[in-house]
């Protein structure tokens, strides 16, 4: 914020007058534009009529309670899928980040003290595993989530693998992408830590696995917590892809409902608004956690970006929707 105000001088009386006038002009222009280009055509089509809005806003309407029950069910399904996907992505992502960090050092290790053939074999295996994990990350980071979800849904059964309910296909599809993103968030968090942390750990005799588990990971989690919360927003939006495979989250239920009530635009306005409220709340939470961390004594000296990290890198990479 302070940066922005440095772009122009504090307004004097004249500048303030200009600002007020131009504010009013802009405000009026927007209002007039909305009236002529949005309100009038929509009104002409009857989009503001009570018979399309009543089931959504009038509690005395016959369909009101049934409709809101279904909307509630839909958001419940959305949240359940999102939470499952986030928890699973966190677990898988953490393991993956550990594997990546560990493999990176292991692939350079010379395996001194092992007989030569074993040492060479181990070296080759580690290099290969390192390459595989890198390819895995590149591939799933580069694929649209729609594709991974559909791939899992159509592909696994054709290989004879059954996951049961539809939700698991959606969750697995989301996890494939998000675990990779979370792994990268954590990895960059660990690599961004001061080198002294790792060196000190090694000096007191911790193995590299212990160093990761006891020293690096806890700090990376703490720094990256806001980014991880932002990732939840991404996942929540991505569950909307469930509609493609028929998982009954909120958008899927919306497509069913509009075929009965014939009020597409109204339904999507309401559903979109609820989405915005939930996600806006989560973003605020991420910002709050960020500020808490910046103030906390234990983390004060750690590098914390001014913006939640997810706002730039992975979070936006965050995929679909």
């Amino acid at each position: 914020m302070s940066q922005q105000t440095t772009l122009y001088d504090a307004p004097g009386p004249r500048a303030r007058r200009v600002t007020i006038i131009s504010s009013i002009v802009v405000g009026l222009l927007v209002l007039v534009g909305v009236y002529f280009f949005v309100y009038k055509p929509l009104d002409a089509r009857g989009e503001f009529d009570m018979d399309v809005w009543a089931p959504l806003i009038d509690p005395s309407d016959d369909d009101f309670s049934a409709l809101w029950t279904r909307i509630g069910d839909g958001f419940k399904a959305t949240l359940i899928a999102a939470v499952l996907a986030v928890v699973a992505s966190l677990i898988v992502g953490t393991l993956l980040s550990i594997a990546r960090i560990w493999l990176k050092s292991a692939s350079h290790r010379k395996w001194v003290g092992f007989p030569a053939p074993v040492a060479i074999l181990l070296r080759v295996i580690m290099v290969a595993l390192d390459a595989i994990s890198r390819i895995f990350v590149e591939v799933f980071r580069g694929l649209p989530v729609v594709i991974t979800v559909v791939f899992v849904w159509l592909g696994l059964p054709s290989l004879g693998v059954e996951l049961g309910d539809l939700i698991w296909y959606l969750v697995l599809g989301l996890v494939l992408y998000n675990s990779v993103v979370i792994a990268e968030i954590l990895r960059s968090g660990m690599e961004g830590l001061p080198v002294g942390q790792r060196e000190a750990a090694e000096a007191v005799g911790l193995s590299s696995a212990q160093t990761i588990r006891m020293i690096l990971l806890p700090q990376a989690f703490r720094i990256m917590l806001p980014a991880l919360i932002s990732q939840l927003v991404v996942v929540l939006k991505d569950t909307s892809l469930g509609f493609i495979i028929g998982y009954e989250e909120i958008l899927r239920i919306t497509t069913q409902v509009v075929q009965i009530l014939d009020n597409q635009i109204q339904m999507y306005v309401v559903v979109g608004t609820i989405y915005i409220l939930i996600n806006y709340g989560l973003s605020k939470l991420a910002g709050y956690v960020q500020r808490r961390l910046a103030r906390g004594s234990k983390t004060r000296n750690l590098p914390v970006d001014a913006e939640p990290p997810a706002a730039i890198g992975a979070g936006v990479g965050g995929g679909l929707a």
């Binding site: 049934a66 409709l67 279904r70 069913q256 409902v257 009965i260």
Partner: peptide, 8 residues
């Protein structure tokens, strides 16, 4: 033919 109604 087969449409989920408001009743679910």
């Amino acid at each position: 033919f087969g449409l989920k109604g408001l009743s679910g």
